[in-house]
């Protein structure tokens, strides 16, 4: 089933001079884990926000085309309605703290209170996401007294607790160290495994290559390509879009070593190792 259909989407910010999104069309299946890549200002955040309805409802501006999420047309529904299906985690963890709750535990409850969950269900879900995001030990602290990484985990936990069908994450691991990023990616992959559709804008290409089913490459508001990671990262023109392939791909490319039995280069450590071992005999 098509979970997300984007059809000739065009968008210009009210104060923007050019279209931030130029005629974008693609479709996403239920349960896919999608990566959005592209250099700075290529439109990644704008596209993410178009999936939850912040574009156009929050910013206004000129909007054309259609975005349909789980059968719901974004343009004709309120953000509150859409947010029951689509959760979004933003780049800056600090501005996602509501500022009206005294503890991390209560902070996570904020969204659940708004959608009117019964208390028992709230407690069950909060417990679950605290464990999933590994922040149980800070549950009684003030949300503002966390490290950047912990805040980011809390932001993700707050959205996951609302159990959206579709999870949109805009560079959600920018404040996390490599080990922390890995943990968060693992947790999100678990969710993806449970059938949640995940869309993530991300700079860490090794992670994108390892975890995403498909990768969407944006450049100056245009969709350049939307395909499997091997295909995207094997492109010869990648640098013209300001994107560097994962280090494994670059090494294999330099050595001219393609993935066994296909026409693209390996994108993960495991595949690179396989290709190298294969070529060594």
């Amino acid at each position: 089933m098509k979970k997300i259909v984007v059809d000739h989407l065009k968008y210009k910010y009210p104060l923007g001079e050019e279209l931030a999104l130029q005629d974008i069309s693609f479709q996403i299946e239920e349960g896919e884990f999608i990566g959005i890549i592209g250099k700075n200002s290529s439109g990644k955040s704008t596209l993410c926000q178009a999936l939850v309805g912040l574009v156009p409802h929050f910013y206004k501006g000129a909007y054309g085309g259609k975005v349909i999420v789980d059968g719901l047309e974004v343009k004709t529904h309120t953000i509150a309605e859409i947010s029951l299906k689509v959760g979004m985690v933003f780049q800056n963890p600090f501005t996602q703290v509501t500022g009206s709750k005294m503890t991390v535990y209560e902070e996570i409850a904020f969204g659940l209170e708004n959608i009117g969950l019964p208390r028992e269900e709230m407690r069950r879900r909060i417990h679950e996401v605290l464990k999933l995001m590994k922040i149980e030990h800070v549950k009684d602290r003030s949300p503002f007294d966390l490290s950047g990484g912990q805040m980011q985990r809390m932001a993700i936990a707050s959205i996951i607790a609302m159990k959206p069908d579709v999870l949109v994450l805009d560079e959600p691991t920018s404040q996390l160290d490599p080990a922390g990023s890995e943990e968060v990616f693992q947790a999100i992959q678990d969710l993806s495994g449970q059938g949640i559709t995940v869309i993530m804008a991300e700079h860490k290409m090794e992670k994108v290559a390892q975890y995403c089913n498909r990768v969407l490459l944006l450049h100056e508001g245009k969709l350049v390509d939307f395909a499997a990671p091997e295909k995207i990262f094997s492109r010869n023109d990648l640098e013209t879009y300001g994107v560097a392939a994962p280090v494994y791909t670059r090494v294999c490319k330099a050595l001219g070593m393609k993935k066994q039995g296909c026409d693209s280069y390996p994108v993960t450590l495991k595949d690179a190792e396989l290709a190298l071992r294969g070529s060594l005999g």
């Binding site: 926000q49 939850v52 912040l54 929050f58 309120t78 953000i79 509150a80 947010s83 029951l84 689509v86 959760g87 979004m88 933003f90 800056n92 600090f94 501005t95 996602q96 703290v97 509501t98 500022g99 535990y105 209560e106 409850a109 904020f110 969204g111 659940l112 209170e113 708004n114 959608i115 009117g116 969950l117 019964p118 208390r119 709230m122 407690r123 707050s158 959205i159 609302m162």
Partner: peptide, 26 residues
């Protein structure tokens, strides 16, 4: 800028939801 971003974050957490609100604390 923070205010704008915070407002967006509140929106996606159902702040303007029409559902009757519930409370974590009794």
């Amino acid at each position: 800028i923070n205010t704008k971003e915070r407002a967006m974050a509140l929106e996606v957490r159902g702040f303007n939801s029409r559902n009757p609100k519930t409370y974590l604390n009794e």
